[in-house]
Every structure is written in structure tokens, then in C-alpha cells.
Simulated assay, not measured.
Amino acid sequence: MSLARRTLMEAAAARFGQRRAYGDTTAVDALLTEQTETAYAEATGHAALATAENSDALAVQPGVLAVRGRVLADVLYLEGVLAGARTRRLAPELIARLEDAVGLGHDLAVLLADTVRATAAAPAASTS
């Protein structure tokens, strides 16, 4: 089943509070590979669009700001997942991986915020 079809089916199931979980690493690895392949296949179009639209620092700002918003929302969701994992005393390795992901996510959100600030500062610096 294609990733797009699976994603649509999973999104529909999630609307009813259901999510699919994979019980073996082979299935997880296949899903991760498919996600990666799909993302890279779509990246060419994204890169072309971003290159065409981002003619100056202020043109970069909306896209970076949107990415930061999505990253921050996802990191805050992961914090909830981490809190639940700790509360339920799930595997220490899982908790450690979630802690790493949350930490890196917050770092990425900070870096993206700094990037957005740089887009606002760049026009001011070029006029000085």
C-alpha cells in the first residue's frame, strides 16, 4: 500500500481516535524508508518553489516562520508523549530517545526563531 494511501487511511482513523502501531522493526523500517523516499521525491518541487520565491531575506521569512510553528507544535506534542511514557514507566531507552527528540526539537525551534529574526535584521543591515 502506498504511503499516501496509508497516510490518508491513518488520518481518517485518527479522526476517530485510532492510530496504527507497528509491532516489529521490519514493518517500522519499511514505513520509515517509504516516508524518507516520499519526502525526498517531493523535495525537488519544494526546493524549486523555495528558490524561485525566496528572492530576498524578507521573502524567506514566512516559510521559515511556518516551519518553526509546525516544529514547535510537534515538539510540544512530543513533550506530552514523553510525559505519558514517564508516567507509565515505559522502557528507559524509549524515554531517553523521546528526551533526545524533545531536546533537539526545542533546539531546532530556537534556531528557526533566530533565522526568522535574521530575516528581519537583514534588510535593515543592507540599508545601513
Results as ranks from 00 to 15, higher is better:
Ala21Lys: 06
Gly69Asp: 01
Thr26Val: 15
Ala101Trp: 00
Asn54Asp: 09
Glu53Thr: 06
Phe16Asp: 06
Glu10Lys: 15
Ala73Met: 07
Gly69Cys: 09
Ala109Val: 00
Pro62Lys: 11
Thr36Tyr: 04
Leu31Asp: 05
Ala14Trp: 03
Gly63Leu: 02
Gly17Asp: 11
Ala125Tyr: 03
Tyr22Gly: 06
Ala83Trp: 14
Asp24Tyr: 03
Ala85Thr: 08
Gly23Met: 00
Leu65Asp: 08
Gly45Cys: 10
Asp100Ile: 03
Gly63Pro: 02
Glu79His: 11
Val67Ala: 12
Leu32Asp: 11
Thr26Glu: 10
Ala109Lys: 07
Gly45His: 03
Arg70Asn: 03
Gln35Trp: 10
Gly45Pro: 05
Ala27Lys: 06
Ala30Phe: 11
Glu99Cys: 13
Leu94Gly: 12
Asp107Asn: 00
Ala73Lys: 03
Gly17Phe: 11
Ala21Gln: 12
Leu65Phe: 10
Ala50Met: 00
Leu49Val: 05
Glu34Asn: 02
Leu94Tyr: 14
Pro123Ile: 05
Ala11Phe: 05
Arg86Asn: 12
Ala57Thr: 01
Ala109Ile: 02
Gln35Cys: 13
Ala66Cys: 09
Ala57Trp: 04
Ala39Met: 02
Leu58His: 09
Met9Asn: 13
His46Pro: 02
Met9Arg: 13
Tyr40Ser: 01
Ser55Ile: 10
Thr127Gly: 01
Thr51Asp: 08
Asp74Val: 07
Ala120Ile: 05
Ala43Gln: 04
Gly63Glu: 06
Leu104Arg: 10
Leu108Met: 02
Val110Glu: 09
Pro62Ile: 13
Ala118Gly: 01
His106Gln: 14
Phe16Pro: 02
Arg97Pro: 03
Leu76Val: 05
Thr7Phe: 09
Asp100Glu: 15
Thr127Glu: 07
Ala52Ser: 00
Gly105Lys: 03
Ala13Glu: 10
Ala59Ser: 14
Glu34Ala: 06
Val67Cys: 08
Ile95Tyr: 01
Ser126Cys: 15
Ala83Lys: 15
Val102Ile: 02
Asp29Arg: 09
Arg15Gly: 13
Glu93Tyr: 08
Thr25Gln: 10
Leu58Met: 14
Phe16Ala: 10
Leu65Gln: 06
Gly103Glu: 00
Asp114Thr: 07
Leu82Pro: 13
Thr87Cys: 07
Ala66His: 02
Val64Asn: 12
Thr87Ala: 15
Ala14Glu: 01
Thr25Asn: 14
Asp29Asn: 12
Thr36His: 02
Thr51Met: 00
Val71Glu: 01
Ala124Val: 09
Leu8Ala: 01
Ala50Thr: 07
Gly80Met: 09
Glu34Ile: 04
Ser55Asp: 00
Leu58Tyr: 07
Pro92Thr: 11
Asp74Tyr: 09
Asp56Arg: 06
Ala113Glu: 08
Phe16Asn: 11
Gln35Met: 12
Leu108Lys: 03
Gly103Val: 13
Ala12Glu: 12
Leu32Glu: 15
Ala120Glu: 04
Val110Met: 03
Ala50Asn: 03
Ala85Gly: 13
Thr7Gln: 11
Ala14Asp: 00
Leu32Ala: 15
Ala113His: 00
Ala57Asp: 09
Ala109Pro: 11
Ala48Lys: 04
Glu53Leu: 12
Asp24Cys: 10
Asp74Ser: 14
Ala48Thr: 04
Asp114Asn: 12
Met9Asp: 15
Glu10Leu: 15
Ala48His: 07
Ala27Phe: 07
Asn54Met: 15
Leu31Trp: 10
Ala11Lys: 10
Thr127Cys: 05
Thr127Asn: 01
Arg70Tyr: 03
Asn54Ile: 05
Arg68Ser: 04
